[in-house]
């Protein structure tokens, strides 16, 4: 019998064996969606508070091997604030945290398309502005990648982009395609799950023996 990919990577310390991830299936409850979830520029709906930073719209779609949208998938978004700081348990009370910016949301896409209104994250620790996208879908357990933005000087030195061959870098850079009625720039990205033109995805379970 084949070994599970995930637990293969556990080192021989006294860690507990992880429960296997599994597919989300096609029937994640639609009713757990909230209409406001795709706008991170409103921390509280109906209030005037807004996060610091330049507003942007990231528009995109997940495409399968046949060129069809990854319908019914769950997408998770995660990003730093305008100062480039992530909001976590450890940074919650830091002066660098924007109280009106969360940086996390989850969305169930009907067709594979998504449109997130947010702010462009800042640059810290040599990182270019980026958003981490995680896909949970029927047929796969979880796929992780990062999306960057066209015309950012910091793209040239970002360690994630630099770790990829040139043709793969381009797959992760959202293109500026216009602006909406409020002059908010719209970026567009196509994420190809499998086959020709495949988008690079990342391994957050590093296998033992592969470390530098």
């Amino acid at each position: 019998m084949v070994k599970n990919n995930m637990n293969d990577t556990i080192n021989p310390t006294n860690r507990l064996p992880l429960t296997n991830e599994d597919t989300v299936g096609p029937y994640y409850p639609i009713c757990y969606d909230h209409d406001d979830r795709m706008d991170l520029t409103k921390s509280i709906v109906g209030q005037q508070f807004e996060p610091k930073g330049d507003k942007i719209i990231l528009r995109g779609r997940y495409i399968d091997k046949n060129g069809d949208g990854a319908h019914g998938a769950l997408i998770e978004f995660w990003q730093a604030n305008a100062q480039g700081v992530f909001r976590t348990e450890d940074t919650e009370s830091s002066p660098e945290i924007d109280p009106h910016f969360d940086g996390y949301t989850r969305y169930r896409t009907v067709t594979g398309d998504f449109e997130l209104k947010t702010i462009k994250s800042g640059t810290q620790l040599g990182r270019a502005p980026n958003i981490t996208l995680t896909l949970f879908s029927d047929g796969i357990s979880r796929l992780v990648t990062q999306v960057f933005f066209e015309n950012e000087i910091s793209n040239e030195t970002d360690p994630v982009l630099m770790s990829l061959p040139q043709d793969k870098r381009d797959k992760l850079i959202a293109r500026l395609v216009g602006e909406d009625d409020d002059n908010i720039p719209i970026y567009d990205i196509e994420i190809i799950l499998a086959g020709e033109g495949e988008t690079p995805f990342f391994d957050d379970f590093l296998a033992l023996g592969w470390r530098d």
């Binding site: 990854a70 047929g139 630099m162 495949e198 990342f202 391994d203 592969w210």
Partner: peptide, 15 residues
Amino acid sequence: TSYERTPRENLRIIP
């Protein structure tokens, strides 16, 4: 669905 949506290339190492 697994056939249509599973990447064929290896995952990449995160720096």
